[in-house]
Design a protein around this nucleic acid. Sequence first.
DNA 1: TCGGAATAGTTAGGGAGGCTAACGAGTTGG
DNA 2: CCAACTCGTTAGCCTCCCTAACTATTCCGA
Lengths: 123, 123
Amino acid sequence: MARRLRAEKSDQELTDGQFSVLAVLDRNGPLTPRALAEYERVQPPSMTRTLSRLLDRGLVDRAGDPTDRRQVIVRLTDSGTLAVQETRRRRDAWLARRLAELEPKERAVLAEASEILRRIADS
Amino acid sequence: MARRLRAEKSDQELTDGQFSVLAVLDRNGPLTPRALAEYERVQPPSMTRTLSRLLDRGLVDRAGDPTDRRQVIVRLTDSGTLAVQETRRRRDAWLARRLAELEPKERAVLAEASEILRRIADS
DNA sequence: TCGGAATAGTTAGGGAGGCTAACGAGTTGG
DNA sequence: CCAACTCGTTAGCCTCCCTAACTATTCCGA
């Protein structure tokens, strides 16, 4: 499925990793690079690089934590929030079409499976 | 789930792409690079590179097609066949443990979902 | 039949993302 | 108060994906 969805992705779009980081920030609010790295199960330098790219595109924003000056707080910009929504919409289009073609019962199976997998992945 | 599984992968193991190619050859028998590229939804040069690595490791084998000399036939070596089985065993270990902890009904849901997704991905 | 079009595979070059090692800056605790 | 730890980053290397361009071979139609 991952390969199949990749084939649907147009150029100029966010990569999976970039989108995933934006989505986490959208759901959870501002986070430190370290927290993001742990969330994505990636080493901190890898996250630094991804964040640099997002910063270059103006989608996120870095700010120093005043109470602990070692830390950095990463935040979505307005344009970042917009990009999450827009990308979600576009990216889901292909999948949404396929899902619409399924029986209601089949969609229910996928929804249940999704919850089970989420539980496994978090364990 | 992909990220979660990646975290379970030990060093020195085959990458996802490499393993996937070996698995296709194991299931379908010898194929041309182009057929493999289409199967993996990857451009031919990407497949050339993956095949080079597998060739370096002695896991596959290239042979010219006698009837069409433009074509190349890629085949698993004995050690490639062994590697597929061995990797499948190791890679599945983490997931198998998790699956064993589920209710039989939950496993059934995942099995159904898997079929539905396979159908979608092939469409 | 013979030369241009199409096809198979490769090489060259660039981008994103992953990793480890190493370093500066800031915090903390014995 | 200084040594040990933590946070983030930089540097350097790897894999994998892509497009463009090239060689070799096959196919097809004037």
